[in-house]
């Protein structure tokens, strides 16, 4: 392997690694920003559903008896095809109303977990609660009765796969686009290494040739002072050895 190949490969490896890092950082940031935006959008929907439901129980009705609740959930659910379901839970985490075919079957968490979510949402300072797991983006808002006591919890489950798909598209597009600068950078790095290291390699090759030439009996004196001094001493040693060998053979 030549110097050009070794150093070129190292530089190209650093280049590829750095580009991969840039792609990864951008992807991670895009994914985070997209998630934030989506959560913020779902928050609008959750607060809308909460306000509408609170209006429905404003006259003192118990939450399970709110007649418009189902309509509200259906309307909210229809606002985005990737909403897996919208449910209204009571404080024990039991589903009171639901919209979306998979609302109960695919609703994440057990009733006990959802009861904990209810408590967390009731204590949330900004009036909404959110959580992200591997399958869904969950955004909720507590429903307050006319005495401002939390009596229920609107929960929107958004399909995480939709977000992952968007982020995936971004990653693929960016990775494809990044191939161009990578290819250009790679070519330039190779050209630079060739330009800088090839002459160095050639000079080393010339030195190698000089040293190989010294093995023969007749050769031109090396141009370099150090090599010439070495050559002279080497030839001296070689001749001294030859003389000793001859005298030993004569015995």
């Amino acid at each position: 392997m030549s110097l050009f190949f070794k150093l070129g490969a190292a530089t190209a490896a650093i280049l590829c690694f750095s580009i991969a890092l840039i792609v990864l950082l951008n992807y991670a940031k895009f994914e985070t920003t997209l998630g934030e935006l989506q959560r913020s959008r779902l928050r609008v929907l959750a607060l809308d559903a909460k306000a509408s439901t609170e209006a429905a129980i404003d006259l003192g009705l118990a939450l399970p008896a709110a007649r418009d609740a189902q309509q509200i959930l259906t309307r909210v659910s229809a606002m985005d095809p990737d909403i897996r379901g919208v449910v209204i839970l009571d404080r024990r985490g039991t589903v009171l109303f639901q919209s979306g075919l998979h609302a109960t079957t695919h609703l994440p968490g057990s009733a006990r977990e959802r009861a904990v979510w209810f408590e967390e949402a009731a204590a949330a300072r900004d009036g909404t609660w959110n959580r992200t797991d591997s399958t869904a983006l969950l955004v909720g808002a507590p429903i307050l009765n006319p005495f401002s006591q939390p009596v229920g919890f609107v929960l929107i489950a958004y399909d995480r796969r939709a977000l992952d798909a968007r982020a995936g598209v971004f990653l693929h597009t960016f990775a494809r686009q990044a191939l161009w600068p990578l290819a250009c950078g790679f070519t330039l790095v190779c050209a630079l290494m060739w330009g800088l290291l090839k002459p160095l390699g050639q000079r080393f090759q010339a030195m190698e040739k000089t040293f190989r030439g010294m093995e023969g009996p007749a050769h031109a004196a090396p141009a370099d002072e150090d090599v010439r001094a070495f050559d002279a001493r080497y030839q001296e040693a070689s001749q001294a050895l030859a003389r000793a060998e001859q005298s030993l053979e004569g015995t």
Partner: peptide, 11 residues
């Protein structure tokens, strides 16, 4: 310099 220029272009 070349690597940084490439990364800037990608960014």
């Amino acid at each position: 310099l070349l690597i940084v220029a490439t990364l800037v272009a990608a960014s």
